[in-house]
């Protein structure tokens, strides 16, 4: 087990090194098409890293949005603008200062955060125990129920019907059931944004066609 941990740590370090290399390449790149491709690579690397950190849903969003949609949207933007970035006129002191200040503020903010996996973290002390108690025994009971299907007097079936939401994965149960309205709201927001962007792009295209017809 420890060997696996060491291997995972080495992989994480190498992935982060690749991330740093990609980021510096993007910053120094003047060809914007290549920069867009490299942002796609950056997203894939970030998704790998998040997956190792046990966040497959975030990793999948990162890959779908970062490597898929963002790349295509960036290319669509490139079609409307130039493909070469202008080199900065002089050494950008002020932007570098601002970036360093913002980064330092973010790092300073992480000092207040609880450690990774801290059981006394706020995320684990309020409603989380309730969710755990409602969901995890649910799985155990249904597994036990599956094991002894031939027992005639089985109370677990009764409690399965009453406790929990019947979703075996705890994250899925929180996302889709306990916070279902929240997720519905997020989905509505994203859907509306998608419709808005599509309408804007299509309207622009038709107007250009009308202008071409008139001219």
């Amino acid at each position: 087990m420890s060997l696996t941990d060491v291997a995972t740590q080495i992989i994480v370090i190498l992935l982060l090194a690749l991330l740093v290399g990609t980021a510096t390449t993007i910053v120094r790149m003047r060809d914007l098409w290549a920069a867009v491709m490299l942002t796609g690579i950056f997203s894939f690397l970030g998704a790998c890293w998040m997956l190792i950190l046990d966040a497959p849903d975030v990793a999948f969003t990162e890959a779908a949005v970062g490597a898929g949609i963002a790349t295509v949207l960036m290319l669509a933007t490139l079609a409307l603008t130039s493909r070469e970035a202008k080199p900065p006129p002089e050494f950008p002191i002020l932007p570098i200062l601002v970036v360093f200040m913002a980064g330092a503020a973010l790092v300073f903010g992480t000092f207040d955060m609880p450690h990774f996996g801290d059981p006394s973290a706020p995320a684990h002390t309020h409603v989380m125990s309730e969710y755990m108690n409602d969901t995890v025994p649910d799985v155990r009971q249904s597994a036990a129920h599956r094991d002894k299907t031939h027992d005639e007097h089985d109370d677990s079936q009764h409690s399965v019907a009453h406790h929990g939401v019947g979703v075996p994965n705890i994250i899925t149960s929180v996302l889709a059931s306990y916070r279902g309205y929240d997720t519905l709201g997020e989905t509505v927001v994203i859907f509306t944004a998608g419709i808005g962007v599509l309408l804007l792009l299509r309207g622009r295209r038709e107007r250009r066609d009308v202008e071409e017809d008139e001219g």
């Binding site: 990609t22 290549a34 491709m37 796609g40 690579i41």
Partner: peptide
């Protein structure tokens, strides 16, 4: 990653992205 960085043509870079995926 090196190919995406160096790649002279557009298709080198697209291929690098695909390979990275």
């Amino acid at each position: 990653l090196a190919r995406a960085r160096l790649g002279p043509t557009v298709f080198d870079r697209i291929l690098a992205l695909n390979m990275f995926g």
